[in-house]
Structure formats: C-alpha cells, structure tokens
C-alpha cells in the first residue's frame, strides 16, 4: 500500500455521504435526481441542469489513466515523497478525477492504462481514493 501523505479531508453536510462511504471502502458518486448526470467533484448542486438534489450511487472503482506526471519536486509534506505519480483517472462512470497512481513503478505508468481504486486511510475515518494498475 501507498504511504503518501494523507490528511483527513474537510467533511461538510454536503460531502458527508461521499466520505462516509470511503470509510467502508466504497467509492460513491452523486447523481442528479433531475437529469441523472453523474457529478464531479462531489456536490449537491447539479452543474448541468442547475438544480439541487442528488442520490449517491456506487461506482465500480475502475478507470483509465487520462494523463499523469512523475513529480520530482513536491511541495511541503510531498517534498520527501518525490518522485510520485499524480494523475487524472477517467472513471468508468465518466468523470476525470485527480488522484495518484500507486503500488507500481512510476516508469510503468501510461495513458490509457486500466487502473482500480486503492484506499489510503486517514486518522479520522474517511479514506482517500488512489489508484493502482488493474490486476
């Protein structure tokens, strides 16, 4: 498992369903109850039809690397982790999400690669979704 710096995120009433699910190792996404659009980043306001109201659906936790970078000069707590892989992963449900690719040689990461979610725990309950090459 990854030991990248992982801090408890701010949990608000708006984002609590997302973070509660992460504590159980489930990736959930908000879907607009009016137009059924999957929303990212998680929020209760739909940026497509501009109405309030979502239901939380289970995501597969699978996706594809859209872009990545091997960062050699991290900031702050990341300075000592370099090099590490930062990436946008396109979830199978559609959204492209910022994350890290972990548990693999950074030189082996490529665009189009299939990846699946790996949970990095925080000390306050919520876990942070990172991704590793799919088995």
């Amino acid at each position: 498992m990854s030991d990248l710096p992982t801090f408890a995120p701010p949990v608000t009433p708006e984002t609590k369903p997302f973070w509660d699910a992460t504590a159980e190792g489930r990736l959930v996404l908000p879907r607009c109850t009016s137009c059924q659009t999957v929303i990212w980043y998680p929020r209760t306001f739909c940026p497509e039809c501009h109405t309030e109201g979502v239901e939380w659906i289970d995501a597969t936790g699978e996706g594809t690397v859209y872009s990545y970078t091997v960062t050699h000069k991290g900031d702050g707590p990341w300075r000592d982790e370099s090099p590490y892989v930062m990436a946008y992963v396109e979830l199978d449900e559609g959204p492209r999400v910022l994350t890290n690719i972990v548990d693999c040689d950074p030189a082996k990461v490529s665009i189009g690669q299939r990846v699946s979610v790996r949970w990095a725990p925080t000390d306050e309950g919520p876990a942070v979704p990172r991704f590793a090459p799919a088995p």
Binding site: P9, R43, S67, T69, K73, G74, E81, M86, A87, V128
Partner: peptide, 24 residues
Amino acid sequence: APEAGFEMNHGMTIHGGYALAARR
C-alpha cells in the same frame, strides 16, 4: 474552495498541473 477535500491529498503543485497538460 469547494473542491479542496477532493484535491488536497494528491501532491498537486503548480508545475505538476502544467505537466499533466503537457503529457496529454
């Protein structure tokens, strides 16, 4: 920022953001 919780744990840097664009 409303997105902060979803983007704070991935080691984003200014050059990293631009590198993601360059790679793509």
